[in-house]
Simulated scan of single mutants.
Amino acid sequence: MATVMIHATVTLDGYLADPDGGVDWMFDFPSAPEDGDVVARVCERIGAIVGGANRSRTIEEGEIPYGGMLEVPVFLMTHQATDPIERDGVTYTFVVDDIAAAVATAKEAAGDGWVSLLGGSISRQCLRLGLVDEIHLDVVPVLLGDGISLFAGLGIRVDLERLETSAFASETHLRFRVLER
């Protein structure tokens, strides 16, 4: 059975992006080959992705999950029905307003792999619904001071068990199991 996980690169103050949605800070720090190895091991296990659709429900450059390096089914949450889009061998399926159904469908598609949840809103909704098994964070040493938060507004307590921790050039990699409520 698939493992549902939040996988995010965040700043030390917990932001996914700057206030305008920019992630340039993500590429402006030193890293070691070991940092890349940690992320590659995670990516190898991802069998499906759940994220949020953009306003035009299209797949634009810069919006492709994992920069297009994963060829796995992608399920995008939306409020309006849209036909699936195929791009570079990846099928993007739009799911209207039912995140639990999107996660269930992604779990089927992932088989024994991992379902990666992308974005703060998607992650918080799934945590509130008890759909998340693990949280994987790649923390970079920068403080943005403001931006788009991964967990702000969650509104519930979530207890975690640390499974793995590693740190190399400048990233710290954290992996937690979400404990039952």
Rank of each mutant, 00 (worst) to 15 (best):
A167E: 07
E34K: 14
T58S: 04
T165L: 14
P84F: 10
D20R: 15
A167Y: 03
Y66D: 01
D112E: 15
Y66I: 03
D18P: 00
C43A: 13
A17Y: 02
V10E: 06
S149Y: 00
S31K: 09
I59R: 12
M77K: 02
I64L: 07
N54V: 03
V140K: 15
V142E: 05
V90C: 04
A167D: 01
L150M: 05
D83W: 03
M77Y: 01
Q125L: 15
L154F: 07
S149N: 03
F27D: 01
G22N: 09
D18V: 02
G22E: 07
V90N: 08
L131I: 13
T58G: 05
A101P: 03
G155D: 11
G52W: 01
H7R: 10
C126K: 10
V39C: 12
V50C: 12
T93K: 00
D97K: 06
L154H: 05
L131E: 12
F176K: 07
I64F: 01
V23L: 06
A102I: 00
F151R: 02
T91F: 00
V4F: 06
R162L: 15
R124C: 13
Y15Q: 13
I85F: 14
A152S: 14
R175Q: 04
S121P: 11
F151E: 02
S116H: 14
S123Q: 06
A17M: 07
A53F: 06
D133A: 05
A101C: 10
D83E: 13
E63C: 02
R41L: 15
T82V: 02
L154Q: 01
Q80M: 07
V95A: 08
L163M: 12
A169Y: 02
V139Q: 08
D20F: 08
C43P: 04
L163R: 11
A100W: 04
T91S: 10
G52T: 02
V132Y: 05
R162Q: 11
T105S: 08
A169Q: 09
A100T: 15
L154K: 00
R181N: 05
R124E: 11
G113T: 15
M77G: 15
E63V: 06
M77I: 10
R45Y: 08
D112S: 15
T11C: 00
G130I: 10
L16C: 09
T9K: 09
